[in-house]
Write a protein that binds this DNA or RNA. Structure first.
Lengths: 336, 336
DNA sequence: TTGTAAGCGTTATCAT
DNA sequence: ATGATAACGCTTACAA
């Protein structure tokens, strides 16, 4: 079934092909009479303008490659949703690429490049040098969320992870925490490392906590947070403050505490997470957390994207920092 | 910056443009020598084949429009991720469209059509007649998850909602529930309605429960489940079994029960959800639920997609039912 | 196996 | 305001 073309419409309407084109373009000079004729013919034939040829002519596809992974984390799912909305409003299409590892990323990039996407947006937490190189090679603007990637075509909007770490430490100091625990995410996660630095630096500077700080390693999943605290308690350690690199793990932490029953949050131990996922607000957790303000981050990303798309031909690179917002909930309010 | 074309490569390699084309096509007759020359030249220039022209020629874009919404529900997020993986393996691109209402869907469909996508896959729970009409008009294969949409170009893979409702009722009967509660999703959600029917029919048939069944209405969010049960308890009602149309609401139910403290799950009241989202397995909830087996559903959808893409020109329509799998957890195991 | 040339469905340019 | 014509970058007959 050959689809209906502008030639067909032109023939039926008794006008030229260019008239059809103009009828569907808002910024063209065409008489109302002609436009009506064209639209009527188009409707009769069920014609829909085909954007593919115009991509060839303009070199711009108005498609943006969105590279994601880990949608099981509600934070990324929600970020994707907001981003998709923003891109739609900017009249850009989303070419979605799901990636679990660097390998799939490589082939995915080839695919994206062959579709002549105008830019790439990614929230991948990974930040290896090779990935950055692969991205730069595309000569296509790349906007990252929370990554440590650097390169000529790469721009980044990052949450102020270090600052949030400091704020978390401030809470711990104010509440007189003496046995703090840091629950880290994967080692390769740059955001997690920055949170750790802000947290540890501040605690260290404030007093003799330096030696006391216990560092656990998780992988950003609920189960890893649960396991980490379970093991800690089994070893007989009694922390009175836990800062988790993300909310998923923090939920695991809270469940492990509750199940074990020795230490109660927030009276015996306070807990702080990161991301402010919906579950943090659930009554069963009531978790203090840092909101990354994805709406702001997305807005900034769109702004950068705008600039990058105008500065075509020239590698554009910028980094912008967004302060996370502390959302205090019950998990840091003892005596309630 | 004009991008590198096959003409450039041909010139450098000292071959014709068709030779370049053949070098990048696996099913073309070309000598190894020529291919090497071409590949070398391509690498030197950083040439990447452009798929856009071939879309024009073949009329197939190898892009599938994926229409989603409600990613804040982990079930949909996970379904999207699985679908994206399956599509990538089938070498199909994902053109993502985020939709919150019928209005955005309409404009979104126009966009999709103008990019000449080969098919549409959607997990939208809505199923209005007008949406179905709009989809059919595209003359493009549509694969739906869990929808009640019908139309010449529309195929559907549905969870056996009715059967799962029956199974849930079976649990209630076995446990001797006398004050059952059904917590419904939005009225427009066909899946939710089917679950209700299977559940109610079975209870009714079994005994005198018919009159006793309390029906509450939620909107598939955590908060609506929480509120519904809170109000119920405040009214002095004491249910001993609650079947929730989805897990998000069921988590709200469990938190409301726990917070109120009068009725304990599972000893005083058992709770069953639907979707088997990750949170159902969290230790804080330990919620019995129905797993829709999205892996199977996605596999079936891909199978249908395959058929639909081969049967181009002819409207293809089919409906396939997948049995949900009961995952029994603590919320239905009293006396543990 | 290789090269030549036509064509895919638009939009932009240039006359009229 | 309108119509003719030339691109856009590739694939695919067809010819050699």
């Amino acid at each position: 079934m050959r689809s209906v073309t502008s030639i067909d419409v032109a023939k039926l309407a008794g006008v030229s092909q260019s008239a059809v084109s103009r009828a569907f373009s808002s910024s063209a000079s065409i008489s109302d009479r002609t436009r009506q004729k064209v639209l009527a013919a188009a409707a009769a034939l069920g014609y829909r303008p085909n954007r593919i040829p115009s991509i060839m002519l303009s070199g711009r596809s108005c498609m943006v490659g969105v590279v994601i992974g880990g949608l099981d984390n509600p934070f990324y799912a929600s970020a994707l949703e907001r981003l998709a909305i923003a891109l739609r409003q900017a009249e850009l299409q989303v070419l979605l690429v799901q990636v679990d590892d660097a390998l799939t990323l490589d082939t995915a990039l080839d695919q994206l490049a062959s579709y002549r996407i105008d830019a790439i947006v990614t929230s991948l937490a990974v930040g290896s040098k090779s990935v950055a190189d692969a991205l730069s090679e595309l000569q296509t603007p790349v906007i990252c969320f929370n990554s440590s990637l650097v390169g000529p075509w790469i721009s980044t909007v990052v949450s102020n992870n270090y600052g949030a770490g400091q704020t978390a430490a401030g809470i711990f100091l104010k509440q007189g925490v003496t046995n703090p625990v840091w629950l880290a995410g994967p080692a390769k996660n740059a955001a997690s490392r920055a949170r750790a630095e802000g947290f540890c630096d501040t605690l260290k500077r404030a007093s003799g906590h330096s030696g006391a700080l216990i560092k656990l390693r998780g992988d950003d999943t609920y189960q890893s947070g649960y396991n980490a605290v379970r093991r800690l308690l089994q070893r007989g350690v009694r922390p009175d403050g836990i800062f988790s690199s993300n909310d998923m793990m923090a939920c695991g932490v809270l469940d492990a505490l509750r199940e074990r029953g020795e230490l109660h949050c927030p009276d015996d131990v306070i807990v702080v997470g990161y991301d402010n996922i919906p579950q943090a607000a659930w009554h069963g957790y009531d978790l203090t957390s840092f909101d990354q303000r994805t709406d702001q981050m997305v807005a900034v990303a769109m702004d950068m994207l705008d600039t990058a798309l105008q500065t075509v031909d020239h590698p554009y690179s910028e980094t912008r920092l967004i302060n996370a917002q502390l959302i205090e909930r019950g998990s840091t309010r003892p005596g309630n």
